[in-house]
């Protein structure tokens, strides 16, 4: 089950698809989170994003996070889908859904999964700005840091 729980998607997807596959009569609640492409970041106008993944390790680490969620929380099922490729403002970049008997575990688990995915899964984001520049988020700052020293 968990092998399929974290997925990379190269194209836009309808979140109703993973959500509908989680229907379960034992579930008393469903919690989901959608990360959307935003039109600004750190004071700059963003027109689009590119997500690039190291697929083997992204899938392994993503599924490891989901295994952890099953151990930490009393949940029934969960899915996480993360986009790769070129995304426009407003598109869904990442989607997490969790079903549980009770809402607290659904909420907490959903938050755990998105927080850990953002911190640990080898996926990178390149922002394209309205001024024509672009940059890898969290990496260009590293570069600036290196140049200063």
């Amino acid at each position: 089950m968990t092998q399929e729980s974290f997925l990379l998607a190269g194209k836009a997807f309808d979140p109703r698809d993973p959500a509908s596959s989680m229907k379960n009569p034992a579930a008393g609640g469903f919690s989901s989170f959608e990360g959307w492409v935003r039109n600004h970041n750190e004071g700059r106008d963003v027109i689009s994003l590119e997500y690039e993944a190291y697929p083997d390790l992204a899938n392994r680490e993503g599924n490891r996070i989901i295994d952890e969620a099953f151990k930490k929380f009393d949940i029934i099922d969960t899915r996480c889908v993360h986009r790769t490729g070129h995304l426009q403002v407003g598109e869904i970049a990442v989607w997490v859904g969790v079903t549980a008997k009770h809402r607290q575990d659904a909420f907490r688990s959903c938050r755990y999964i998105i927080d850990e995915v953002k911190a640990r899964v080898p996926i990178w984001k390149k922002e394209h700005y309205a001024d024509g520049h672009s940059g890898w988020v969290r990496c260009e700052h590293c570069e600036a840091h290196v140049h200063r020293h």
């Binding site: 998105i114 990178w124 890898w136 590293c142």
Partner: peptide, 24 residues
Amino acid sequence: EFSAMDTPLNEGDEVVYIPPVAGG
């Protein structure tokens, strides 16, 4: 698989350096 920077390397190993991640 994630490994330590001082892991001994062997013939044929596949190595990937992972810059700070920024998913989500």
